[in-house]
C-alpha cells in the first residue's frame, strides 16, 4: 500500500463510526522502491490529496523526510518539491502492518501490500 492509496481509505463503513479518517498506520515492513517521476501526474494529483493526511502518514512511519508540512503557494514550479511529493506518494510502500480506525481502534491487516477492509457481519 502506497501512501497515495492510504490517502483515499476510510473505516466509515464500520457501525457507529462517523468519519473514520484518516486511518492510523502501524507499519511492520516498509519497502522503498524507486519509480519513474512524472511531474505532470504529481501536479494533477496534489489538488486531490488531503495534504495533512499525507504528511502525518509519512511522518508516522518515519518517511516524511523534508517534505513540507503545508503546501506552499507556488509549488507548481518547484521541481525539487514535486520530486519529494512523488517519493512519499509512490515510492514508500507499507508491505505488512495494520490500518487503524481513528474512532473505534478496529485494525485492518495489510498483508503483502494489500489492505483488507472487509468487515464482519456484526460490524456493519
Amino acid at each position: 500500500m502506497k501512501l497515495l492509496t492510504h490517502n483515499m481509505l476510510t473505516s466509515k463503513c464500520l457501525k457507529g463510526v462517523n468519519v473514520g479518517y484518516p486511518l492510523g498506520i502501524v507499519a511492520k515492513d516498509i519497502k522503498v522502491l524507486e519509480t519513474e517521476f512524472n511531474s505532470e501526474f504529481v501536479l494533477r494529483i496534489i489538488p486531490k490529496l488531503d495534504w495533512d493526511t499525507l504528511w502525518n502518514a509519512a511522518d508516522s512511519i518515519g518517511h516524511s523526510g523534508d517534505l513540507p508540512r503545508t503546501l506552499c503557494d507556488d509549488y507548481e514550479n518547484d521541481v525539487e518539491f514535486l520530486k519529494k511529493a512523488h517519493h512519499v506518494l509512490l515510492e514508500v510502500e507499507v508491505i505488512n502492518g495494520e490500518l487503524v480506525c481513528p474512532e473505534s481502534g478496529r485494525k485492518f491487516a495489510i498483508n503483502k501490500g494489500i489492505p483488507n477492509m472487509l468487515l464482519n457481519e456484526d460490524e456493519l
Binding site: L4, I114, P115
Partner: peptide, 18 residues
Amino acid sequence: EVEVVTMDLMSGFHWDNR
C-alpha cells in the same frame, strides 16, 4: 503498477468525486 485493496464495492473509500 496496480494498487490492490480488499473491500466490498467502494465501502472503504474516502475520496469524494476524485
